[in-house]
Amino acid sequence: MIAHAMTFAFGCFGLGLLCNLWRLYSGPGIMERVLALDTMVINMIALIVLYGMATDTGLYFQAALLFAMTGFVSTVAYCKFILRGDIIE
């Protein structure tokens, strides 16, 4: 039962990634693209954790944590750059 649910969740998050990719390609402004990239990072974290469950190792949690931090910092840095024209003042 868990295997089927896991396949369903893999499909859902993969489809979500495709939606985000389309928004990243065709977004009318900068902020749509930043938002699409941020959502892609969140979906990728879910995929990494699901893959860790599927392969039955706890090795991928560090990767997910590092990826979460990288995504947050990159989004905030881009927004800061747009707001102030500089990242570290």
Partner: peptide, 20 residues
């Protein structure tokens, strides 16, 4: 676990579809 996984997949898909 299965209910949580299905719910999580649906919510993730709804979020990404809403972005689209």
């Amino acid at each position: 676990i299965s209910a949580l996984l299905v719910m999580a997949g649906l919510f993730g898909l709804v979020g990404s579809f809403g972005l689209l």
